[in-house]
């Protein structure tokens, strides 16, 4: 619980952060709210030589109307997402899912971009981002690019971000009339989901799951079943198909697969009603 020594760099803006990443390469880690990185450092599971603190870049903390979407600065804290009237009206599932992250002190420190860039397969927010089919904006030394949410999570704690890129904005489609649901199953209020399921139904239905694989994921099997006209119950029955859920003290593969079916059933029931 005592981190190894590291150098600390405070970045004043995104360009400074990207410059620091370019200089230090793989030895550097960006720190936003710190609520994912610092625990890993305390366990010495990660030992970055340089910590680049981007937590004070205030101009990346915003929730703006972007016309057909809502643009959210990557350093917007969970509490701001949770309490945003704009999001509650235009993408209510995101505000709701933000309220499920950790506990109030985590939500006052942690940021949307930090949570997504960490790429934890059990985190809540990727479920909403995937089900909303959001677009993520990354900035690097050669400018910025857009990444679709479904292409963003590439492996366990790995994302499509290059080592010299940082996430700057999350663009969420406006879906004021969509049906939606987030089903999080956990033991204690502040814990990660043992399994979590998000559904957004807006004509077609998107279903995303967390802690059912080595990344947060869209449920291809369920979505295909629904697209083919299956009932919610029949679609839920295939929720675990093709997946390799993680195993830990909270759940083995059999139990997680069962939970996925139950929670997808509940989520579809709520989102499609």
């Amino acid at each position: 619980m005592i981190p190894a020594s590291f150098d600390y760099v405070e970045a004043e803006n995104a360009d400074a952060a990207i410059a620091a990443l370019t200089e230090h390469g793989d030895e550097a880690k960006l720190m936003a709210g710190g609520h994912s990185l610092i625990p890993l450092m305390k366990f010495r599971l990660t030992t970055p030589q340089v910590v680049v603190d981007i937590g004070r870049i205030n101009d990346l903390s915003y929730i703006n109307d972007g016309g057909d979407h809502i643009a959210i600065g990557a350093l917007t804290r969970h509490m701001a997402v949770e309490t945003s009237d704009v999001l509650k009206a235009q993408a209510p599932i995101l505000a709701h899912v933000a309220s499920h992250v950790g506990d109030p002190s985590v939500r006052h420190r942690g940021t949307l971009g930090g949570s997504l860039a960490h790429g934890d397969p059990a985190s809540d927010l990727p479920a909403a981002i995937l089900a909303l089919n959001a677009t993520l904006v990354a900035k690097g030394p050669n400018g910025q690019r857009e990444i679709s949410a479904s292409d963003f999570f590439t492996g366990f704690l790995e994302t499509a971000l290059a080592s010299d890129e940082m996430l700057t904005e999350i663009r969420v489609p406006k879906v004021p009339d969509a049906g939606w649901s987030y089903q999080k199953f956990n033991r204690r209020a502040q814990d990660w989901a043992i399994v979590g399921v998000a559904a957004v139904s807006n004509g077609s239905t998107n279903v995303a799951m967390v802690n059912m694989g080595h990344t947060p994921l869209r449920s291809a099997a369920v979505e295909a079943a629904l697209a083919g006209g299956a009932s919610a119950a029949d679609a839920a029955a295939v929720a675990a198909e093709g997946l390799t859920p993680p195993e830990d003290l909270n759940g083995d593969a059999e139990y997680r697969s069962h939970l996925a079916r139950v929670l997808v059933g509940r989520a579809l029931g709520e989102a499609m009603s």
């Binding site: 625990p39 033991r187 204690r188 209020a189 502040q190 814990d191 830990d248 003290l249």
Partner: peptide, 16 residues
Amino acid sequence: CKNPSLMDYLVPSPTE
């Protein structure tokens, strides 16, 4: 020990 940290060793909180 497979669960020595408070992330894995589930001490309940007031909400439970």
